[in-house]
Simulated assay, not measured.
Amino acid sequence: MTDHAASRHDESDAGLGAIISERRRLIGLAYRLLGSLAEAEDAVQETYTRWYAMSRQRQDAIDSPGAWLTTVATRVCLDLLGSARVRRERYVGEWIPEPLPERTDWISGRPGTAATDPADPADRVTLDESVSMAFLVVLESMTPAQRVAFILHDVFGFSFAEIAVITGRTPAACRELASSARRRVRTSRPPEVPAAHQAGLVADFKRAWDAQDINALVGLLAPGATFTVDGGGVVAAALHPIEGGEGIARYLADLAVRASGGLMVLERTVNGRAGLVIEHEGVIVAVYAFDVADDRITRIWAVRNPDKLHPWTAG
Results as ranks from 00 to 15, higher is better:
68 W>R: 00
149 A>P: 05
205 F>V: 02
300 I>S: 01
213 D>F: 01
262 G>N: 15
158 F>H: 10
240 H>L: 13
7 S>I: 08
69 L>I: 00
263 L>T: 03
156 F>K: 05
82 G>D: 02
31 Y>Q: 05
115 A>N: 10
172 A>V: 09
267 E>K: 00
221 L>N: 07
105 D>Q: 00
240 H>C: 08
7 S>N: 06
257 V>T: 10
249 A>H: 01
107 I>P: 06
269 T>H: 08
42 D>W: 04
56 R>F: 14
57 Q>G: 12
178 A>I: 01
246 E>K: 02
134 A>M: 07
17 G>Q: 10
243 E>F: 01
201 L>A: 13
275 G>N: 07
73 A>N: 05
287 V>R: 04
264 M>H: 14
224 G>P: 04
205 F>I: 06
294 D>H: 05
240 H>F: 14
102 E>G: 04
87 R>V: 12
276 L>D: 06
175 R>I: 05
159 S>K: 03
140 E>N: 09
238 A>S: 14
208 A>M: 04
212 Q>H: 06
68 W>S: 00
100 L>C: 06
258 R>H: 09
147 R>G: 14
222 A>M: 03
306 P>M: 13
50 R>V: 01
277 V>N: 06
182 R>P: 04
199 A>D: 10
243 E>W: 08
258 R>T: 07
258 R>Q: 15
133 M>I: 06
211 A>T: 10
17 G>L: 08
298 T>M: 03
48 Y>N: 12
179 S>R: 08
18 A>Q: 15
148 V>I: 12
15 G>S: 11
197 H>E: 15
77 C>M: 02
233 G>A: 08
243 E>M: 00
292 V>G: 05
71 T>H: 07
213 D>V: 03
98 E>I: 02
254 D>H: 05
140 E>K: 04
5 A>K: 11
2 T>P: 04
250 R>T: 13
286 A>R: 11
29 L>E: 09
315 G>E: 15
196 A>N: 05
107 I>G: 12
176 E>K: 05
159 S>Q: 10
233 G>N: 09
202 V>Q: 04
196 A>L: 05
187 T>C: 08
184 R>N: 15
171 P>E: 03
174 C>R: 08
260 S>D: 15
270 V>F: 09
13 D>H: 13
108 S>K: 11
1 M>S: 14
89 E>H: 03
264 M>I: 12
11 E>H: 02
231 G>L: 02
191 P>Q: 07
132 S>I: 01
51 W>E: 11
21 S>D: 15
117 D>Q: 04
